[in-house]
Simulated scan of single mutants.
Amino acid sequence: MSPKHNPSQLSIFPEISGGLSAPSIATIPEFDKALGNLIKMSDLGAFIQINIHGIDKIYSLNLNELNIPVDFLYNDVPPAPITVHLFPRDTQKALKKLTYGVKTFFNRGNSFNTSFGYFLFRSHFPFWKTYLLEQQETLNQYLTDSLSKGIFGQYFLDHFQQGYDYIKNAAADTAPWTFREKLLLKDIQECRNNLIESQATLSALKATDLDFPFQVLTLKTAHIPMVLHQYQSQIHIHSVFKTIHLEYLSDIDVNTIEDVRKLTEKL
């Protein structure tokens, strides 16, 4: 195989590309200047993007996606799909308020907002790390205070019940299903274990099974913890340090915070 060379492109490794006359990107003055600006920008601060994972827990239910004979459904028509949240609206609002609170750290004295995220001044890096840990602890403490003593488990049962009732209300008299009078966490966990062991999927469930609705909801909620400490372990507040492409730094001079601000305003 012979190496191919495009004269419109620059070779990063000319010594192994077969074209020693091709200029290396490391020798380009624009690249050197851009790299120098990137280093100086890093001395001034960094772009930070905040990601909060694990708080929102929902599932959707659409009977059209299940292999259910139409005569098993009331009027032979499936109802409109639904989306069910783990928490009631008040708890959702409280959690959202806490997550918004993470951004209150940023102000004119330590950062400015850009399309790349917040540009945090380097002098405030240690404070940001400490603040993130404090916010994680505040969030965990709120969850412990508000959702312990069986409250979290009841929320899980309530949101499971919503989907269970959705199927129950959609069922025709001809459906062979039986519906449990009372839902228990231990029964859901046992069903989870059995379905995991058998590697069951929604498409593989048999609509003629008496416990089909319960199995459907068990799979639909399998990604949602049933106990509080497992839910808390899935919540993470991350700050991702981002960089800017070198092409934006090749024809400017970066020496001050104001230079970075002016650059981001043009992008």
Rank of each mutant, 00 (worst) to 15 (best):
K103T: 14
K103A: 11
K103D: 08
T104Y: 11
T104W: 08
N107S: 12
R108Q: 14
G109P: 03
N110S: 01
F112Q: 00
F112E: 05
F112T: 09
N113I: 14
N113H: 09
N113V: 14
T114G: 06
T114V: 15
S115I: 15
S115V: 15
F116T: 09
G117I: 11
G117D: 02
Y118A: 06
F119H: 03
F121S: 05
F121L: 13
F121T: 08
H124V: 12
F125H: 08
P126T: 10
F127Q: 11
W128G: 07
W128V: 12
K129G: 02
T130Y: 07
T130I: 15
Y131T: 09
Y131N: 04
L132H: 00
L132F: 02
L132G: 00
L133K: 15
E134F: 10
E134I: 15
Q135G: 03
Q136Y: 04
E137Y: 08
E137H: 08
L139E: 03
L139W: 03
Q141S: 12
Q141H: 12
Q141G: 05
L143M: 12
L143S: 06
L143G: 02
T144D: 05
T144I: 15
S146Y: 00
L147W: 05
S148E: 02
S148K: 06
K149I: 07
G150M: 04
F152I: 13
F152R: 08
G153N: 10
G153M: 09
G153L: 05
G153T: 12
Q154P: 01
Q154E: 07
Y155I: 00
Y155G: 01
F156G: 02
L157A: 01
H159P: 00
H159M: 14
Q161L: 12
Q162G: 02
Q162H: 09
Q162N: 04
G163P: 07
Y164N: 02
Y164V: 04
D165A: 13
Y166N: 01
K168F: 10
N169R: 08
A170V: 13
A171L: 08
A171R: 03
A172M: 09
A172T: 10
